[in-house]
Computed example of a mutant assay.
Amino acid sequence: MLPWKRLFRPLAALLLTTAVAVVPAAGAEAAAPSGGTPSLQQSQESGSGWNDYSCKPSAAHPRPVALVHGTFANSVDNWLALAPYLEDRGYCVFSLDYGQLPGVPLFYGLGPIADSAGQLRTFVDKVLAATGAAEVDIVGHSQGGMMPRYYLKFLGGVAKVNALVGIAPDNHGTTLNGLTNLLPYFPGAEDLLSSATPGLADQVAGSAFLTKLNAGGDTVPGVHYTVIATKYDEVVTPYSSQFLSGSDVHNVLLQNLCVLDLSEHVLIGLTDRIAFHEVANALDPAHATPTSCASAFS
């Protein structure tokens, strides 16, 4: 291989990563008020931007989009890039906070996941009532891509949800690169994890919650499922555990679309416009366009 060819791939990857990070950051800055990042209350009460409950879905995009954040995240920070991206494409976009533990501000997604799914049910009902839509589409990152499956399977969500798009979802739990296998060697560690942060304990591969969730199949009829994963995920491991099995499932590995995409677990949900392009395709499959490295600039 010629020397310049050996240098091209890492250089191109660096340029692409920079573009993926910078382009949406500019959009997020433009969407925020002059004082900086919007507060949770501002996001929920604003008459513009996402979480605008006066927004009425268009004929082109008849379903509002419900964004479900990941563990330790919240309804604003997780979506500073994706929410404006979808708004710019004509969607009514909403996000919620869920899974808060008593005395723990700002960080969400730590409570029992079954309880969080109940909070999602209430939120979806609120969005449908405000918009007049019959169904929503759900887009979730990490836990937020997995938790809605409980709502669909056990809490009646199947009648109110058209599609679920999971970005790096821990659908079958995680081993954290094998670290969870060490828990049995530390007496009391598993009990402490369950009592202090049940939302984390529920996400450990083999947990009682995940066993119940996945029993009888990964999906329910009537919902379109998309999973978008990166092989560089260091949180949900192995990354292949994110994928679902079912008759109406589209599993996507980003590096099959753009070998230069270096996003890991966090960036795939926060800044990766290649992943965002796949989200847009999943929300409007009739007008989907091919996703490639060039999607980072679209």
Rank of each mutant, 00 (worst) to 15 (best):
L2P: 10
L2Y: 03
R6E: 07
F8A: 14
V20N: 13
V23Q: 10
A25R: 12
A25L: 03
A26W: 08
A28Y: 05
A30W: 12
A31N: 11
A32E: 12
P33L: 09
P33Q: 10
S34G: 15
S39N: 03
Q44I: 12
E45S: 15
S46A: 12
G47M: 03
W50C: 05
W50R: 09
P57C: 07
H61V: 00
P62L: 08
P62F: 06
P62S: 08
V65T: 02
V68K: 13
F72Q: 11
S75K: 15
V76K: 08
V76W: 06
N78D: 08
L80Q: 14
L80E: 13
L80C: 08
P84Y: 04
P84R: 06
E87G: 13
F94N: 06
L96N: 05
G99Y: 11
Q100N: 07
P105F: 06
G109I: 00
G111A: 12
P112E: 05
I113D: 11
A114G: 10
L120P: 02
R121V: 14
V124H: 02
D125E: 15
D125K: 13
G132I: 02
G132H: 07
A133T: 05
D137H: 07
V139I: 09
V139A: 09
H141Y: 07
H141F: 07
M147D: 12
P148Y: 07
L152N: 10
L152T: 09
F154Y: 15
F154K: 15
V158K: 15
A159N: 12
V161Y: 12
N162L: 01
N162P: 01
G166K: 10
G166T: 05
P169F: 05
D170N: 14
H172Y: 06
L176F: 06
T180H: 12
N181W: 12
P184S: 02
P184L: 04
P187Y: 10
G188N: 04
E190S: 14
L192A: 13
S195W: 09
A196C: 06
T197D: 00
L200H: 04
A201W: 11
D202C: 09
D202P: 03
Q203C: 01
V204H: 10
V204W: 15
A205Q: 10
L210Y: 02
L213N: 04
L213P: 01
G216R: 03
G217Y: 09
D218K: 12
H224G: 00
Y225N: 04
T226W: 14
I228R: 04
A229H: 05
T230I: 02
Y232M: 08
V235D: 06
P238L: 02
Y239T: 11
S241P: 00
S247M: 07
S247Q: 13
S247G: 13
V249C: 14
H250I: 01
V252N: 05
L253K: 10
L260D: 14
D261H: 01
H265C: 08
V266W: 00
I268D: 11
R273E: 06
I274E: 08
F276Y: 06
E278F: 02
E278A: 05
V279G: 03
N281K: 08
D284K: 10
P285H: 10
P285D: 04
P285F: 14
H287L: 02
H287K: 14
T291Q: 08
S292Y: 04
A294L: 07
S295Y: 08
S298I: 13
S298L: 05
S298M: 02
